[in-house]
C-alpha cells in the first residue's frame, strides 16, 4: 500500500458514459488480480472522499507503474475523475484489498477449469485475472454481459486472450440476447464434467445469481464485491458486507477482508 501522487497519462470517454483513465505511478507497485486503488484528483476539495477503483491493466516500465482503470461516470466522484486531463495529478492509495486466488484451481489433484462471469462495470476487475489464468495455461471460459453494445467494456482486450469468450447483452445488440447468467446456466448444463472454479464481478444481482447457479452445480464462486468506502484501508469500517459463518454472521470489510469473498458465504 503506497500513498503517492500519480500522473494522468491518458483519459478517454467511450460508450454509454464510461471513462478509461491511465495513470503513471512513480514507483514499482506489486499489484495482483482483483485489487483496487483509492483515487481522487489532487487538491480537489469536493467531493471529499476518494473513489475505489479496480485495476484494469498494470504495466511496470523501469521504475514506473502504469495502471489503467475503467469506470462509469455516475456521481460527483467519477465525474471529477472523468474531467482530469493528461499531466494532472491524482491522489493514489494502493494497491488495496485481497486478490483473486487461482490456488483453488491449482491445488486439486485434477486440473480444474476457470469460469469468469462479469457484467457491466464489474468487467474491468477481471481482466488481470483472466490474463493470469491464461498465462498459467488454465482452460478459461469468460462470460461478459452488458446492457447493450455501448455498455460492453474491454472486448478488445479480452478477445486477445486464448480463452473462450461469450458475450451477452440485455437488448441483443451484440452477442447473445439475455442475461449473462442465463448463458452461464445453459453452458454448465451442457458440460460433461463440471470441474470449474467460478470468478465473478458485476452488479450484485448478477453475482448472487452466478453464485446460486454455481452452487447448484457444486462449484465454488469467488465474487469481487463493491461497496461505498471512505478510506479503503480498513479504518472507517463503512464498507462492510454480511458474511455467514456457521450459525452466526459477521460484518466484514470489503476493503480489507475483501473485496473477494466466497459467494456461498455472502448474505446477498
Amino acid at each position: 500500500m503506497k500513498e503517492i501522487i500519480a500522473i494522468v497519462q491518458e483519459i478517454n470517454l467511450f460508450g454509454n458514459g464510461y471513462c478509461r483513465l491511465k495513470l503513471s505511478v512513480p514507483t514499482i507497485l506489486d499489484i495482483n488480480a482483483g485489487q483496487f486503488a483509492m483515487l481522487k484528483p489532487a487538491r480537489l476539495f469536493e467531493p471529499l472522499l476518494r473513489r475505489a477503483m479496480a485495476f484494469y491493466q498494470v504495466k511496470v516500465i523501469n521504475n514506473t507503474t502504469f495502471v489503467d482503470f475503467i469506470f462509469h461516470i455516475l456521481g460527483r466522484g467519477t465525474q471529477a475523475l472523468a474531467e482530469l486531463r493528461p499531466g494532472d495529478q491524482v491522489e493514489f492509495l494502493g494497491p488495496l484489498g485481497k486478490s483473486f486466488s487461482i490456488a483453488p484451481i491449482q491445488k486439486q489433484d485434477q486440473v480444474l477449469r476457470a469460469l469468469i462471469v462479469a457484467g457491466g462495470v464489474g468487467t474491468p476487475a477481471v481482466l488481470i485475472l483472466a490474463q493470469e489464468l491464461c498465462l498459467k495455461r488454465v482452460e478459461t471460459y469468460i462470460f461478459l454481459g452488458a446492457r447493450s453494445k455501448d455498455d460492453l467494456i474491454g472486448i478488445d482486450d479480452f478477445s486477445l486472450l486464448p480463452a473462450k469468450l461469450t458475450i451477452t447483452t440485455d437488448d441483443g445488440s451484440v452477442g447473445e440476447k439475455g442475461f449473462v447468467t442465463e448463458s452461464l446456466e445453459k453452458f454448465l448444463e451442457m458440460q460433461e464434467q463440471n470441474n470449474f472454479v467460478v470468478y465473478t464481478c458485476g452488479p450484485e444481482i448478477m453475482m448472487k445469481r452466478t453464485s446460486e447457479i454455481a452452487t447448484s452445480f457444486g462449484l465454488k464462486t469467488y465474487a469481487s464485491l463493491e461497496a461505498r468506502m471512505a478510506c479503503g484501508f480498513g479504518v472507517c469500517v463503512g464498507c462492510v458486507v454480511e458474511i455467514q459463518q456457521s450459525n452466526d454472521f459477521s460484518y466484514q470489510r470489503v476493503c480489507v477482508e475483501g473485496p473477494i469473498f466466497e459467494g456461498s458465504e455472502v448474505v446477498w
Partner: peptide, 23 residues
C-alpha cells in the same frame, strides 16, 4: 460488537454521514 447493517456511510457536501454502529 457487530455494528449496524450496511449501507453505513454516505458522502455529503463537505463531509460524510456514518452509522457504523460502534463495531
Amino acid at each position: 460488537m457487530k455494528g449496524n447493517p450496511p449501507p453505513r456511510i454516505v458522502e455529503t457536501h463537505g463531509g460524510m454521514l456514518n452509522a457504523i454502529g460502534l463495531q
